[in-house]
Nucleic acid binder design. Structure first.
Lengths: 347, 347
DNA sequence: CTCCGTTGTTAAATCGGATTAGCAAGATGC
DNA sequence: GCATCTTGCTAATCCGATTTAACAACGGAG
């Protein structure tokens, strides 16, 4: 059992002043006059006693708990989206705030009850996040609160959103291909998900494809084809194998996610095609596997860390939160899977 | 700006009773007599007003905040160790507790200051975790507190530990090999790290190897050799390639981690050897890649989810915490990389 | 009819700080 | 010499609950 905590009253007593004086001295407020001598005595006493303010007690009066709630569907589980948490954690720590992390697992009732649990603990603000970019309707308990939407969009909900700049990422993928000299034999695997098999396709897929096609077109190139499939390794493998079996000989594959890329690698390998010698691969996400595949995958990184960090920075910023969409750049990780097009042959 | 929160005084007023009566009625205490009628009126009023208790205010009096602090070096980042967080989160939610997640990034000073931040907010207990199993010395601020050590050990520190049962996992790996008929040509890649290149080797590596060798010996088999290397894909690839280049023809590889397995796959593939046709692979950890590699990897799963869950269950259990080491089983994920030994040929 | 024990309820204190209002002493102004 | 300011500090309240102590009202015992 830890010894009783030192309170401000203890400090005041030791310094020989009233609790009021101690409070002012410790909070360093200048609008209330405290003599140099008193202040020093209080600070000294606090140091000697190892005094730490009880944030819980303080916040009862001040309303501010120096605490942020984080609600998401399942963000901790998403492979390495823990980076979102880390970004948020670090930004919060720099500002002396702590984060309540919660996960509702997609259950609306659980979500409501978690938001309540957060509000009951007087959090100063709430980050409402999603494991992939999508449209959401935040629980009504969050209306009128200080909220930032992380990796999701809620038109009509009065709060800023922080999302990856998928459109520009699509453009950058195209630019990288063009820069390497690719003009034809380019296929997109994973598609824009007009009828999305994978929920990620709704926003990420569409915007990536839009940016990709736009810049390819302007650059005098175009897509030979778009293959729709689920965003996983199995589908990537199956679809690319099917593509090759159908006699196509792509020179570059734009895989909509690293998991699809991994399947593509497998299919290409089985067909005796080398990356990037025979076929270049450009991908999106930069998950763990991207740097570990052989050859290492050139991919546009989902800026998870910066997403989390920006959300906290916004929420702890001064003034009201404008319902603006902040798009965070997706940097191109240039590795080894993109090369110049193979010498001419049947496509 | 959200409207003023409904307080207990509001409820009392509406129900026409004193705050005291409201408090007793709401907390459902039986030791203080409240008439059926009063209780009902209070409950009704609370319902109508949508009253929610202010946990912060309550905990000022009761000392309990229904909140747990979680301090770790870098647990959110570790690929998919987010499962630890998820396990803890779910167990906490079932018990109406919230978690403060923090990460010190291995910095002692940051760690201390985070623990202070947690204690300043009156957390009921603290989980002190590590991203891989190792010996730690928790910050002195945690002495005498209610603490559970997660995925780490601190001899002399008076708190229970929750760790994976690495020893038994090693045994299970051996049992799986024996059951498949393997008796010779077995190599361990990643080794026991007598002089650990990888910090994970200190506990996990040693115990896995110990269990492995023990059961193999009893089963009439033995290791042909142990290759020491870093626990990453690059080293796994290099060492297995070197092994093959030296003329060895193993029939089974026990890779100390999935990352090494992935490197082994690459080296075996380059040498034209198939898994499990020519060489079986048994691994440890069950990271994301394990199920996505082809063939899917047979591996002993690090029980992250259960680790996190058990830590919370212990910490929220009744009574004092005994300094016991809880070992959580590592289940064998049987997939496709383990088969019967190839027909005889030179080893 | 008085005394005592129940029963139901409430006033008041408490938790640890922040904040408001006010007070005493010395300095300044005229 | 008296009114007025400053300066430096403190008493008292408040924040929103929980908890202790006490107090009416009533019924039963003697």
């Amino acid at each position: 059992m830890p010894e009783r905590r030192v309170t401000m009253a203890d400090v005041a007593r030791r310094a020989g002043v009233s609790p009021t004086t101690a409070s002012f001295a410790l909070s360093g407020r200048t609008d209330m006059r405290i003599s140099e001598a008193s202040r020093d005595r209080v600070l000294e006493a606090a140091r000697e006693l190892g005094y730490r303010p009880n944030v819980t007690a303080r916040s009862l009066r001040t309303k501010s708990t120096q605490t942020i709630g984080f609600v998401s569907d399942r963000i901790t589980t998403t492979p390495f989206a823990g980076d979102v948490i880390r970004g948020a954690l670090e930004a919060a720590r720099e500002r002396d705030h702590l984060l309540f992390i919660t996960e509702a697992g997609g259950d609306r009732a659980a979500e409501s009850s978690l938001v309540h649990a957060l509000l009951d603990r007087q959090v100063d603000a709430v980050i409402y996040g999603s494991m992939f970019t999508r449209y959401v309707t935040p629980p009504k308990e969050l209306f009128g609160r200080r909220v930032v939407l992380l990796n999701c969009l809620a038109p009509g909900f009065d709060a800023p959103s922080v999302v990856p700049d998928e459109l520009e990422a699509g453009r950058d993928a195209a630019r990288a291909l063009l820069a390497a000299g690719h003009r034809e034999g380019i296929w997109a695997i994973g598609g824009h998900q007009a009828v999305p098999a994978t929920p990620e396709g709704i926003i990420a897929g569409n915007e990536r494809m839009r940016g990709l096609e736009e810049v390819l077109r302007v650059g005098g190139a175009r897509l030979d084809g778009v293959v729709e499939c689920d965003w996983d390794t199995r589908d990537g493998h199956r679809e690319v194998a099917a593509l090759l079996a159908a006699g196509h000989r792509p020179r570059a594959l734009v895989c909509l996610t690293d998991r699809v890329s991994m399947g593509a690698y497998q299919a290409l390998g089985e067909a005796g095609l080398s990356v990037p010698g025979d076929v270049s691969v450009v991908s999106f996400d930069d998950q763990d596997i991207a740097s570990v595949l052989r050859p290492a995958l050139t991919t546009l990184k989902l800026p998870h860390y910066r997403l989390g960090r920006l959300a906290v920075e916004l929420i702890l910023g001064e003034g009201p939160l404008e319902p603006v969409v902040h798009r965070v750049p997706m940097p191109l990780r240039e590795r080894a899977s993109l090369g110049t097009p193979a010498a001419d042959r049947r496509t």
